[in-house]
Simulated assay, not measured.
Amino acid sequence: MKEEVAANGGERLGESAWKHLIVSRDGPTVEVELHRPSARNALNAAIIKELTEVARLLRRRSDVLAVILAGGETNFSAGADLSAGEADAAVGPSKVPTLLEAREELMTGPDLCRAWEEIEAVTIAAIEGYCLGGGCAIAMACDFRIMAEGAYMRLPEIPLGMNMSWNSVPRITTLVGPSRAKRFVILGEAVDAETCVGWGMADEVTKKGEARAVSRAWAAKVSTLPPIPVRMTKEAINAQATATHLISSFADRDQFLLTSRTEDYKEGIAAFLEKRKPAFRGN
């Protein structure tokens, strides 16, 4: 039986506590569902804040053994929200942020992924449909990824004139190796569920519409195991696998600041919004 999740100090993690998330609990498993259907679960500042907060509240919950992160029935997430309205809302209609302010703002993505990576319970991303950009970054920060038939992952950042940030490139490289990481990140092409499993980027392909059900079965399997060695093993593997991640990705927000001030970036975003092919010139 599902119920709202009570957090420490009496704060509630239930559905009523969130605008863009649906959070529920079934025994030792908590499900967090992205719920911004009007924008295809695109990640704006508000939903990023909520996703970070819920991950931090769940980080050391000893009564939670598994956490499932899911999108909608037809898509996981369209990635970062690039709409003009969201861009204006981020800085205000008459305020241009300083470079320092912009640099600080760009920590929200890395902070989000780190918060999900640091949850002590086992985390599982249930992916239906497309999982783009920032959606991929969050999924890569989880322990496992279950993808339905027809689902795919894609990083559109470089074809849009920017670099892939959110400290996600080392996570991708650790999972698939350098050659496939370059192919996935640089080309910006869709990688289907079967290929993701073959590369090691996902863990199982299910029938369409069953990604969440299979994720629940994985969570149930985890919940039958002794929680202390499970958590210690997750911590040990993550410590080894991510030991050099910060060293290799600490500057990716500064790389984004650089690319976001190029003419190619302006052209990439304009072409995206105008639904046309961009003409990049290397400036």
Results as ranks from 00 to 15, higher is better:
M1E: 04
E3C: 06
E3G: 11
L13Q: 04
G14V: 04
K19V: 07
H20W: 06
L21D: 02
I22E: 03
G27D: 04
P28N: 05
T29P: 01
S38F: 03
R40G: 09
A42E: 08
A42I: 04
N44G: 13
A45S: 09
A45P: 01
A46Y: 04
I48F: 07
K49F: 11
L51C: 08
L51F: 02
E53W: 11
E53T: 15
V54C: 07
R56Y: 12
R56W: 12
R59E: 13
L65Q: 11
A66P: 01
A66S: 10
A66N: 01
L69W: 03
G71W: 02
E73V: 14
N75T: 12
F76C: 01
S77P: 00
A78E: 06
G79R: 00
G79Q: 00
S83R: 15
G85Y: 05
E86R: 02
D88Y: 12
A90N: 04
G92Y: 09
G92M: 11
P93G: 09
K95R: 14
L100F: 11
A102Y: 07
R103D: 03
R103S: 08
E104H: 15
T108L: 09
G109C: 06
G109T: 04
P110M: 01
D111Q: 14
L112V: 00
W116I: 03
I119D: 02
E120V: 03
T123N: 04
T123L: 05
I124P: 02
A126T: 05
I127Q: 01
L132V: 07
L132D: 00
A137N: 06
A137Y: 03
A137Q: 05
I138S: 00
A141E: 03
A141H: 04
F144C: 13
R145K: 15
I146V: 15
I146K: 03
I146S: 03
A148P: 00
A148K: 00
A148V: 01
E157P: 01
L160W: 05
L160C: 09
G161Y: 08
N167V: 05
R171M: 02
R171E: 01
L175F: 12
L175G: 04
G177R: 10
G177C: 10
P178F: 11
S179Q: 10
R180Y: 05
K182M: 07
F184S: 04
V185M: 06
I186L: 09
E189K: 14
V191S: 05
D192P: 01
D192K: 09
C196A: 14
W199L: 11
M201W: 07
E204N: 11
V205L: 06
K207W: 05
E210M: 13
E210A: 15
V214F: 13
S215C: 12
S215V: 07
A217Q: 08
A220M: 06
S223L: 05
L225M: 12
P226F: 15
I228P: 02
M232T: 14
T233L: 15
A236L: 12
I237W: 06
I237S: 08
N238L: 12
Q240W: 11
T242K: 07
T242P: 00
T244C: 09
T244W: 11
H245P: 00
L246P: 01
S248N: 14
F250W: 10
D252W: 07
D252C: 07
R253N: 06
Q255C: 13
F256Q: 11
F256A: 15
L258W: 13
S260D: 07
E263A: 15
K266T: 15
G268Y: 10
A270H: 11
A271T: 02
F272Q: 07
K275D: 07
F280R: 10
G282T: 06
